[in-house]
Design a protein around this nucleic acid. Structure first.
Lengths: 232, 232
DNA sequence: GGGGACGCTAAGCGCCCGCTCATCCTCGGC
DNA sequence: GCCGAGGATGAGCGGGCGCTTAGCGTCCCC
């Protein structure tokens, strides 16, 4: 179901491209802190101390606190785009590719909830230039999903009235997983990925839905909504 | 440009229950500020000046900044619950009631995006007691939607594998509207409500979907996702 | 028309913020 | 054995934070 590598960090994000080591530790600490308390509520002192360094050390590797957010956001969006591209461009019917795209995108949001929260919800905290750059990536994300839905609609595989609106809803559904997913909850990222892929295929009117998905039934309550972090 | 009071109308939230007048103006100013910049990034000086008062005036009507957020959150959740209850308890088939619940819930999130953002995304900023109170309201919100889906599933009107998971997804889809909806975008809250009601009926496998919804087709692009505020 | 209650403000308290800087430690090259 | 470069630090800057307090005007009640 998942490789050892994927399970290695609860976050399945490698961050290997960030060097040197101290810079990566600071970035990781910032992801955690931003996800828990939000960008504006996080202090540079908090980030530095999570990384086991003095407050001033941060400024050797990053010009400002915002640069940290920018780097996290770009790397995260690139990873999200890569996941969707891989699913969109594999072989198979539009149904198979859409199910793959949704389930892997959802798994990423659930498993890497910490990163995904920062990536998806702190966009407004970026300055205008950085935000424009990230928005360009988001447009590509949108285009990948829209592409699959368009193909399915064109071939008659799907039954969709409003392609752009449906695309928006599908992405919205996946992204919001980062808000409510609880690591201690009753569902695994894989289960949610499967459930969501089935729901999305129904949304686009795919001819044959997820056939015998089974097993998803009757597994107790989920804690409503409880937006999760804070604990520490 | 316009006062907080004037802009609040676009919000369809009355706030009439908040008295005296100065306390209501402060609350409205806080809603705006929290929605734009987030609770932690909003200063009491900003709230007071938006309400046309001195910084100290805030503390005549509210003990702390957090009390403002608590009041906003409780009033908002009560309104959300009222909307869903009204839809859930009217006469009609489960299909009709679910469509009504979704479309009116979505309209509230789109029209009152400012309020809804604070209500749905600033839960973590509350202290433990206040948050526990709000979470109880959220459990009731969840129960209303789950109730409709259960009835539809029991009567054979719907085809649902995982009632709780589907409930979660439906609520998630509606709530996330507050994140991406753009007042200047191409879609009206009513159009999104209709689209989403149709999508949700498909998700639960309702026998007859939204029949000839029509008109939703081909109305140009939406601006990807752009999470909006910040403008000022 | 005197007096207290109320709504509000100017001033400011103690604290912590993002960020800087002079200094120090460590380590590879010669 | 000495030196320079770069990573890391303790101290601290200017400023803004949430919130308090002393006092002022404006009403209502008698």
């Amino acid at each position: 179901m998942s490789t050892a590598e994927e399970r290695a960090d609860s976050d399945l994000q490698s961050w290997a491209e960030v060097t040197p080591d101290a810079a990566r530790r600071l970035l990781l600490a910032a992801v955690e802190a931003f996800a828990e308390r939000g960008y504006h509520a996080t202090t540079t002192r908090d980030i530095a101390s999570r990384a086991g360094m003095s407050p001033a050390a941060l400024y050797i590797h990053y010009k400002t606190k915002e640069e940290l957010l920018h780097r996290i956001s770009r790397i995260g969006h690139e990873k999200a785009l890569e996941i969707l591209r891989t699913a969109a461009r594999r072989e198979g019917s539009a149904t198979e590719r859409l199910a793959d795209a949704v389930s892997s995108f959802v798994r990423w949001h659930a498993r890497g909830r910490t990163t995904a929260r920062v990536v998806q919800y702190e966009l407004d905290s970026l300055g205008p230039d950085a935000r424009a750059e990230i928005l360009a990536l988001r447009r590509q994300v949108d285009a990948e999903v829209r592409g699959i839905i368009e193909e399915g609609a064109a071939s008659g595989e799907f039954d969709v009235l409003d392609v752009q609106g449906t695309t928006l809803a599908v992405l919205s559904l996946c992204i919001d997983v980062a808000r409510w997913f609880n690591v201690d909850g009753p569902r695994t990222p894989e289960e949610i990925g499967e459930l969501y892929a089935d729901l999305v295929l129904r949304m686009v009117g795919a001819k044959k839905a997820g056939h015998g998905v089974g097993k998803a039934e009757g597994q107790g309550r989920i804690p409503v909504d409880g937006p999760g972090p804070r604990g520490r």
